[in-house]
Simulated assay, not measured.
Amino acid sequence: AVVAPDTSPRGPGVADDEAYDLGQGAGFYIDATEKPWAPHFAMESYVIRDLASAVRDNFPVDGRRQSITGHSMGGHGALTLALKYPEHFRSVSAFAPIVSPTRCPWGEKAFTAYLGEDRSAWAAHDASALMASGRAVGHFDDILIDQGLGDQFLEGQLKPELFEEACAMHRQTLTLRRHEGYDHSYYFIQTFIGDHLTFHAERLK
């Protein structure tokens, strides 16, 4: 079963922002603590608790065998949730993820809004910081990341080398594939999604 949750809460009674990288459509897979985003923006709890329970309760699936993946902000979510809750997942992969939101404009903007000015609270939602701390080291036999080298956000926002360095610190196996000629678009995902489905299927067996 492939489950694709939305990227944020939606609706007329839910806080929003005119920018594409904040508010509805950009929940960043964290539980907001600041107004007006709390309590609706609780995407971490939604994915880990509510969505997982809904799937188990309504479909003939084994809730103990899960994998997680995502693109860009969703890739950030996939990595951080897998590292924070390794007991929930057999495998994790990502497409062009934001690997260190505490060190890029997208993440700094979102985390300030959702979590407040205290940056010490941000590290728990940063995949590179989690990996550097040794979180979930050894749980995953491999982590798969695909990144396009023609991605317009590569240097300023995504910075895959930061996660690569953190994995190397703890000898965590990481397959980071860099692809010439691919940008941040859905064609990039379409090209490599089959590899990710195979990667997860092998570990869910």
Rank of each mutant, 00 (worst) to 15 (best):
F28L: 08
P60G: 08
R135L: 06
D50H: 10
G13L: 12
R65F: 01
E164F: 00
S8Y: 05
Q157E: 14
S128F: 03
G150F: 05
Y186V: 07
M73E: 06
A121I: 00
I30L: 15
L174A: 06
G77K: 08
A124C: 01
S185K: 12
D183G: 13
Q66N: 11
A52L: 06
H179W: 15
T7H: 12
K159D: 02
G181A: 08
F111S: 10
Y186W: 15
V47W: 02
H88W: 00
A127V: 11
Q172F: 10
S8C: 13
V3W: 04
I30R: 04
A54C: 05
I189K: 07
T198Q: 13
F41D: 05
G23D: 13
S133V: 03
F188H: 13
R10H: 08
H170S: 09
M73Y: 00
A121E: 11
G63I: 12
G25F: 04
S185L: 03
L83G: 01
I98A: 08
Q190T: 12
A121P: 00
D142M: 04
E34R: 10
R177D: 09
D146M: 01
A26C: 07
G63Q: 09
M43N: 15
L204F: 03
A15W: 11
A52W: 05
A127G: 10
S93T: 02
E108S: 03
L162Y: 06
L149W: 01
R177H: 00
L204K: 03
T173L: 07
G25V: 10
I98M: 12
H88M: 12
G25S: 09
P9M: 06
L174T: 07
H88D: 06
A168T: 11
G75I: 03
S53E: 14
A136G: 03
P105Y: 05
E202R: 15
T112G: 11
S128L: 10
H200V: 06
G138S: 07
K109R: 12
Q157N: 14
G194P: 04
Y187T: 13
C104A: 13
H88A: 11
D146G: 08
G74V: 04
D21E: 09
A19Q: 12
R135A: 15
G181L: 05
Q147Y: 01
V92M: 03
L144R: 01
T80D: 01
A94P: 02
P97H: 03
I68L: 12
T175C: 00
A124Y: 01
L174K: 13
G107F: 05
I98R: 02
F153D: 09
D195E: 15
D142H: 02
R65A: 10
H196M: 14
K159S: 03
D62S: 11
P160W: 07
T191L: 01
E34S: 04
F89E: 07
R103H: 12
L162G: 06
E180V: 10
F199V: 12
Y29I: 09
S100R: 12
H88K: 15
P36N: 06
E108H: 01
Y20L: 14
L79W: 00
G75V: 03
T173M: 05
H76K: 09
L115T: 04
R177Q: 15
P105M: 05
R10A: 13
P36H: 07
G181W: 08
G13S: 13
G75L: 01
I189W: 15
I68C: 03
E34N: 04
A201L: 14
G23L: 11
A19H: 09
S185H: 10
T7C: 12
P9N: 11
R177V: 09
D57N: 14
L144S: 08
E87L: 01
